[in-house]
Computed example of a mutant assay.
Amino acid sequence: MNNNLVSSKIKKITRNDVEITINYIDSVGTPLAEPVTLQGHYNDNLDMPWKTIPGYVLSSVQNFQQTFIPNPDGIYLIYFKQMAAPVVVYHRNTNGELISDPQYIYGELNKDYQAKPLAEAERFLVDYPKKSKGQFSSQVQEYEFVYNTIPFVKYEIKKDLFVRTNENVDVFEEPGSKNPLQLPLPHDSTWRVYKALKETYSNTIWYNLGGSTWIPSSENISSVILKQYSEEKKAIDSPLSANANNISYIYQIIDSMPINRSAKILYYSDQNVTAWETPYGTMDNHRYFGGQEVFVTRLIQLDNNSVWAELKDGYYIESKYLNL
């Protein structure tokens, strides 16, 4: 018998290297993904490469088979388009009340989503889901973010309270702000505190240094030392220039300049600046109100870099409160 003929007959019977093409289509025959071609030996098990297609669910299989048997038409996995259920996000205050309308997030089935807090209230967030992302499904999914909508309460401060900086300190236009102003407070300078607010969601205290000038008591403000100067007035006698009177100062005078000009108090009309008998010396009950015009006779600079204006009426105020 011819050996080649026997070999040919064996190959036809065993049918090695069978190829099967798997097609992924929708209900009208439109391809949804690239076909996959599988190779295997005749009658071996065929592991179907199922696919999850966002926005669709598998509805039927055409020409289904579980073994490698020749199939020139291939296998067709037919998907049906289906919208996913929405993701609902609630934003509430600490009393459980909604602070905005619920947010509805829509998307295709099995696609990823991310629930997020309100951008404008994110800094007041006090409670939120440990996991706020997932995939759209046929079931409604809900998330809740909780905010402290009363972020600040009044904080009582001692009378005549000041802050002294040991390094440059960032300044903010309003309490709770994340964006500092362009110029920081210089190191080794002293500032009066007019009022203070405390964050209800932390231990941070915000000190108002006049107008729209605020500094927090945390992080890089750790170098700010709070003092009550009425308790530590240890005056140092300083020799002044020839055209000045002998007055006691806490700091040495390093410069003095006559100016003799009018200036206005840089405050709102309902705010006021305290008058001093001497810089950092004794405070007087006299007040200068925002917009009030005063006459400045000279400016003096102390060795802590603060600049004071001597007024015609004999009182002193820091020059930062004047439109010089």
Results as ranks from 00 to 15, higher is better:
Thr21Ala: 05
Thr21Glu: 08
Thr21Pro: 01
Ile25Cys: 01
Ile25Asn: 11
Asp26Tyr: 07
Ser27Thr: 15
Gly29Val: 15
Thr30Phe: 08
Pro31Gln: 14
Pro31Tyr: 13
Pro35Asp: 02
Val36Pro: 08
Leu38Ser: 00
Tyr42Trp: 14
Tyr42Met: 08
Asn43Lys: 15
Asp44Met: 02
Asp47Gln: 13
Asp47Leu: 14
Asp47Cys: 06
Met48Cys: 05
Pro49Thr: 03
Pro49Phe: 07
Trp50Gln: 04
Lys51Arg: 15
Ile53Tyr: 11
Ile53Asp: 06
Pro54Ala: 04
Pro54Arg: 11
Pro54Tyr: 08
Tyr56Met: 13
Tyr56Ser: 02
Ser60Gly: 12
Gln62Met: 06
Asn63Cys: 08
Phe64Ser: 06
Gln66Val: 14
Gln66Met: 12
Gln66His: 11
Thr67Tyr: 11
Phe68Tyr: 11
Pro70His: 11
Pro72Gly: 06
Pro72Trp: 00
Pro72Tyr: 13
Asp73Thr: 13
Ile75Arg: 09
Leu77Phe: 11
Lys81Gly: 08
Gln82Glu: 10
Gln82Lys: 14
Met83Asn: 15
Ala84Gln: 04
Ala84Arg: 12
Ala85Arg: 08
Val87Ser: 02
Val87Arg: 07
Val88His: 12
Tyr90Ser: 07
His91Pro: 03
Arg92Asp: 04
Asn93Arg: 01
Asn93Ala: 02
Thr94Pro: 01
Thr94Phe: 01
Asn95Cys: 06
Glu97Ile: 02
Leu98His: 09
Ile99Asn: 02
Pro102Gly: 05
Tyr104Ala: 09
Ile105Gln: 06
Gly107Lys: 03
Lys111Asn: 09
Tyr113Asp: 03
Tyr113Ser: 11
Gln114Phe: 15
Ala115Asp: 00
Ala115Leu: 07
Lys116Cys: 04
Lys116Gly: 00
Leu118Met: 12
Leu118Phe: 02
Glu122Val: 00
Glu122Arg: 01
Phe124Trp: 15
Leu125Ala: 04
Leu125Arg: 01
Tyr128Ala: 05
Pro129Gly: 08
Pro129Arg: 12
Lys130Arg: 07
Ser132Ile: 01
Lys133Arg: 12
Phe136Asn: 05
Phe136Ala: 09
Ser137Ala: 10
Ser138Tyr: 05
Val140Thr: 13
Gln141Asp: 13
Gln141Val: 14
Phe145Val: 02
Phe145Ser: 00
Val146Trp: 12
Tyr147Val: 03
